[in-house]
Design a protein around this nucleic acid. Structure first.
Length: 683
RNA sequence: GGGCGCGUAGCUCAAACGGAUAGAGCAUUGGAUUUCUAAUCCAACGGUUGCAGGUUCGAGUCCUGCCGCGCCUACCA
């Protein structure tokens, strides 16, 4: 409803401007929030109109105020120096709509959206960096679904890369394990932890003797031969680790619909099909000389940008740079179409295709542009009976339809920006401009360890690392905080509190509550930072349950619920039945005037969730929702402290206060659900 | 070298489109509960938004230069 009023107001002002000044070129109407609630609920800066209309902002504002006429849902419009229009919402109007949970219909664009996230190499345990990815991705899925969009969640599994080969080397060479011995190990709890340590040991082994890297190369080749014993072992390991990843993420209520694997991209000849199209369209060119002789290359994304109709005036500049470069490296006259600096090798001179090439093929499939499909097999059934499918070469006849989507979001960290751009440009160069436009790299920053945190974990730091402000997580070095470990710690820490607070509850109940709190803390922690920022991981912050944390917001819900429990009522039932009986006169009475500003702010903020969620989707930034949830919880806690509700003597006012609590509670629960957080019954 | 990003309170972070007095949390200090149980609330303290210019009614935000840091720049994935 807040969103609706905002749009209505913007539209009305825009219409007014166009009617009164039909020939003027005017900037769009921008709606902001005044710095203080006393000033109003919406603020429109008039300054941008001063110049085009050749008039003072205050004068224009005054004219608008006088001529705009009544707007439904708007109570008052004031002019404020030095040039704002401050607008007050009709408080009773909004509150009545909110109490009755009225939602004006929103437009939902057609077409399915694909969100790809997690994509953890299946060779070791998931760590905190993967948690950030999965939580961001899963929350974005929930945001889209809240907005009414249909979403498929895919988790791309690179099961044929060197990382898997390295662990295979560890089992077969370092540990001399047979296939059946490895199979036995895969059935042990937390097999991924075993691999974590082994992977780090293999990396050391490579460094100890360069000869050892030959083994890696042989193993890598053997994996690609699908009939070999090595391939079978690799599959055994990667599937077992993958299963562990699904279990870990399921602890956080993160699920997937489909797991496309790189092995099928190869075996089902996705790449061959893509390669043919890429060659035919000239996107890939064969190098006959120079550093990349014998490779199929593409122009590096983002460099020497091809002139389009919009920027013809810039056509000269890149060519000059190109000539300069060619001169510098002594290549003038050889006429490669792209300088070596700008070349991106897609197919190596030995004929094998790199990661980006496979990703291009995968993305052509995603948008239904490849003319091929995976085989599908059920792989994992979640406790809620939802099935997660995996790619195979043959597969089951009846399966859901994956691929051929309208939009695509890839949740991948910022280091892959260039590779992502290359995929996007390949789609564009193939003539699929629309698909390229609907390809979004949902980029986010790294999770790193503070030197203190690394020391706490017992890692020996080099002098170089000690001097750094933070240290990157490294699976290769076995350097990082494992996802399951962190979650275990959070649960244990929450459990200690719950045990002391609620000794009367059963241990199972206390564990359940602790788990909800741990998930709330972890998910909120990963979402409160804006996605581009680097998270300097610190146990003190991550394990905190106070201040700006998930449990703070969960606690607000618990408090709201406990008011109703104490009153012998169910909060939702109350809202369904009693809230409708709130008279317009009472709403007006209890919400009017500056004295009611604090309660009004509670209602106002409650009404903003849909607007905030729209903003999160438009900017691919879930942190706005985290901030909103915290703000709402904060307002509620202040309100809770200031107003005794059950002891309120005025019965009508008591009903109004209860309705206020019930509305905030409902909106908090909804917003938290979008973040994948549920509030426990007690805390 | 080139590309991208970052630099805001002691620490960790906010501040959509340039807008009203740059806000939170943590930490520190002082207070609040026989109550809908304090994982809470109130208050104090804390800032030349890296530096120097510029654009304009107005700059943490845009432009230029400099300083510092990170990532990418592999026939790795």
């Amino acid at each position: 409803m807040y969103r609706h009023l905002e749009h209505r107001l913007a539209q009305r002002l825009s219409d007014w401007f166009h009617q009164r000044y039909p020939n003027a070129a005017l900037p769009p109407v921008v709606i902001e929030q005044p710095p203080k609630i006393e000033l109003g609920d919406f603020a429109i800066p008039i300054f941008p109109f001063a110049k085009p209309l050749r008039s003072a902002p205050l004068k224009i504002a005054e004219t608008i105020r006088a001529e705009i006429g009544p707007v439904e849902g708007i109570a008052e419009i004031q002019v404020a120096p030095p040039g704002y229009l401050n607008v007050k919402i009709d408080r009773a109007f909004l509150a009545a709509a909110l109490a009755a949970d009225q939602k004006p219909p929103a437009e939902v664009p057609p077409g399915k959206i694909l969100v790809e996230h997690s994509s953890i190499n299946p060779n070791k345990a998931a760590h905190i960096g993967h948690l950030r990815n999965a939580i961001l991705g899963d929350t974005f899925v929930r945001l889209l679904r809240y907005a009414g969009r249909e979403v498929d969640i895919q988790n791309y599994i690179d099961n044929t890369g060197v990382q898997v080969a390295d662990v295979v080397v560890g089992f077969t060479q370092l540990e001399k394990k047979s296939r059946s011995e490895i199979e036995f190990l895969t059935r042990q709890p937390r097999f991924d932890y075993y691999c974590w340590d082994l992977y780090a040991r293999v990396s050391q082994w490579y460094e100890a003797d360069k000869e050892n890297k030959q083994v890696r190369l042989q193993t890598l080749h053997a994996i690609e031969d699908s009939g070999s014993e090595t391939a079978a072992i690799a599959d055994l390991i990667s599937v077992a680790v993958l299963r562990r990843h699904l279990e870990t993420m399921d602890r956080l209520e993160i699920e997937y619909d489909f797991l496309p694997r790189e092995s099928e991209i190869l075996h089902l000849h996705f790449w061959d099909a893509a390669f043919t199209k890429l060659k035919e369209s000239g996107v890939l060119t064969f190098e006959t000389a120079g550093k990349n002789k014998g490779c199929w290359i593409m122009r590096r994304a983002g460099t020497a940008k091809v002139a389009t109709t919009e920027d013809t005036e810039n056509t000269e500049a890149p060519e000059e740079n190109l000539d300069d470069l060619l001169t510098k490296i002594g290549l003038q006259g050889l006429e490669p179409s792209i300088s070596e600096e700008d070349q991106k090798v897609i197919v190596r001179s030995n004929g094998t295709v790199g990661y980006v090439g496979k990703d291009i093929a995968y993305h052509m499939w995603k948008f239904g542009l490849l003319g091929r499909d995976f085989g599908y097999r059920k792989f994992y059934r979640y406790p809620n009976q939802h099935d997660c499918w995996i790619s195979t070469t043959d597969g089951e006849k009846d399966h859901p339809h994956f691929g051929g989507v309208a939009e695509n979001y890839n949740v991948i960290d910022v280091r892959q920006s260039e590779a992502q751009n290359t995929v996007k440009e390949a789609l564009r160069d193939l003539g699929h401009g629309k698909a390229a436009d609907r390809f979004t790299h949902f980029s986010y920053g790294m999770v790193v360890l503070t030197p203190r945190c690394a020391a706490e974990l017992g890692y020996d730091l080099s002098e170089e690392d000690k001097a750094r402000s933070f240290i990157g997580v490294s699976g290769r070095k076995g350097f990082g905080v494992k996802a399951d470990d962190l979650l275990d710690q959070l649960i244990a820490s929450a459990k200690r509190e719950v045990d002391s607070r609620h000794p009367q509850l059963s241990d199972t109940d206390r564990l359940g509550i602790s788990t909800q709190i741990a998930i709330g803390a972890l998910r909120y922690f990963m979402l409160k930072y804006t996605k581009e920022s680097v998270i300097a991981f610190d146990f003190k912050d991550a394990l905190s349950f106070e201040g700006e944390t998930g449990p703070y917001a969960q606690y607000a819900v618990v408090r709201a619920t406990s008011i109703f429990r104490k009153a012998g009522m169910d909060a939702d039932t109350f809202l369904n039945e009693a809230a409708g009986k709130l008279s317009a006169a009472d709403l007006k009475k209890y919400l009017s005037g500056d004295a009611a500003n604090d309660v009004w702010e509670l209602w106002l903020t409650s009404s903003k969730s849909s607007s905030v969620i729209d903003q999160c989707i438009a900017t691919t930034e879930p942190a706005y929702l985290a901030k909103h949830v915290f703000q709402l919880a904060q307002l509620f806690n202040t309100f809770y402290h200031r107003y005794p509700i059950l002891s309120e003597a005025d019965e009508n006012r008591k009903q109004f206060l209860l309705a206020s609590v019930a509305v905030v509670r409902r909106e908090l629960i909804r917003a938290l659900a979008v973040m994948g957080i549920t509030a426990p019954p007690v805390m």
